[in-house]
Computed example of a mutant assay.
Amino acid sequence: MTRTSGGSAPLTRATEAAIREGIISGRYAPGARLRERELSEELGVSRLPVREALRNLRHDGFIMTSAHKGATVRTMSADDVDELFDLRTRLEPFAAERAARRYAEGDVHEGLTAAMEATAEATESGSLEHIMTANADFHASVVEAAGHGLLSELMAPILSRSRWLFAMTAFRDPHLEFQAHHEIYHAISHGNDRLARLTMAAHIEAGRGPSLLAVGADAAVDDGRAAPPPREPRTG
């Protein structure tokens, strides 16, 4: 399945972004049906860009479709979380390592510095929404700083789903998150590629357990039962 392109792409992208943000924020809850007519009325667009946006969101793993229910918001499982972290712990450390090498060669990425500053400001503000956005932007900026086109393309849906998980794990201490990001930034900006890779890998792996806990708690709420104990984070 390929993503939508064509003349309506700008409107499709805007519609897709609006629906994605609704999923991430929880306005469209896991398992909720996404009806084209209702979304069209809510977003003030025709049904065509809504249909194209839903197709793209299915491609990126945010929704599922079936003959009986149509489009529904995906319920992220523990296996989904593990698979996401399996990729993140391999790809993002590579991005950090490559970014550090570029810094060592004098290729400074101003966007990464701006993202680090925004993370500091958001953490100081205490706004969960701003913290979530800034943290997600920091990870995206590390990928951009790597200057690797194919990596950026591969990471786009992964980073989007990571933002979804960031929203689910808003209970994590933002100051510890900021400290981890600062250590990653320090390693990259000083051109220490090995430290950048190892620090990023440790930071991402530290998020696996809380993410599994959040997914387990959400599943328990949906089923009307007590949350199961969190699975032990994997280190592979």
Rank of each mutant, 00 (worst) to 15 (best):
H68T: 12
R3E: 14
R55E: 11
A202D: 02
V45N: 06
T123I: 00
L159S: 07
T119M: 01
R20Q: 14
A67N: 14
H175G: 01
A180D: 10
V142W: 03
G6T: 12
L195N: 05
Y28L: 12
R37E: 14
T4K: 02
A71T: 13
A14C: 09
E97G: 02
D218S: 11
F138L: 05
V73G: 00
G126C: 05
R20P: 01
L34H: 09
I158D: 00
L39R: 03
I184G: 00
E21L: 11
F178V: 01
A201N: 07
A156T: 13
G236Y: 09
R197F: 10
R27E: 09
H59W: 10
H59P: 05
P49G: 14
A14W: 09
L198P: 01
L43C: 14
A226M: 12
M155I: 06
A206Q: 11
A180Q: 07
L39K: 02
L151T: 03
A227C: 09
V73R: 09
E38W: 14
A140L: 11
P10L: 05
H190R: 13
S162A: 13
R51Q: 08
I131D: 03
Y28A: 06
P49D: 09
L57K: 10
A100N: 00
A71Q: 06
A170G: 04
G236M: 13
F171W: 06
T113M: 01
F166W: 11
F85T: 00
S152Q: 08
L84Q: 13
F85W: 10
E21R: 15
R208S: 09
A146K: 03
V45M: 12
M1R: 14
R20V: 02
K69Y: 14
D60T: 15
A220E: 13
G149M: 03
H182M: 09
P174T: 08
L195D: 03
D173V: 12
F94L: 08
D137E: 07
N192K: 15
V81I: 15
G44D: 13
T123W: 04
H182F: 09
R55P: 05
G61V: 13
V73C: 10
L176Y: 03
A122I: 01
M1Q: 13
L212E: 02
M200F: 05
A9K: 14
S77R: 15
D80R: 07
A226R: 04
R58P: 06
N135R: 13
R51A: 04
A134W: 00
T199H: 07
L87C: 08
L43A: 03
A167T: 12
S40D: 07
E105C: 02
L34V: 04
P230Y: 08
E42Q: 14
A202P: 02
S141R: 11
E92S: 02
I204C: 00
I23G: 01
S152Y: 03
A100F: 00
R163S: 04
G31I: 04
D80P: 12
I158Y: 02
T169M: 11
S25V: 08
V81L: 04
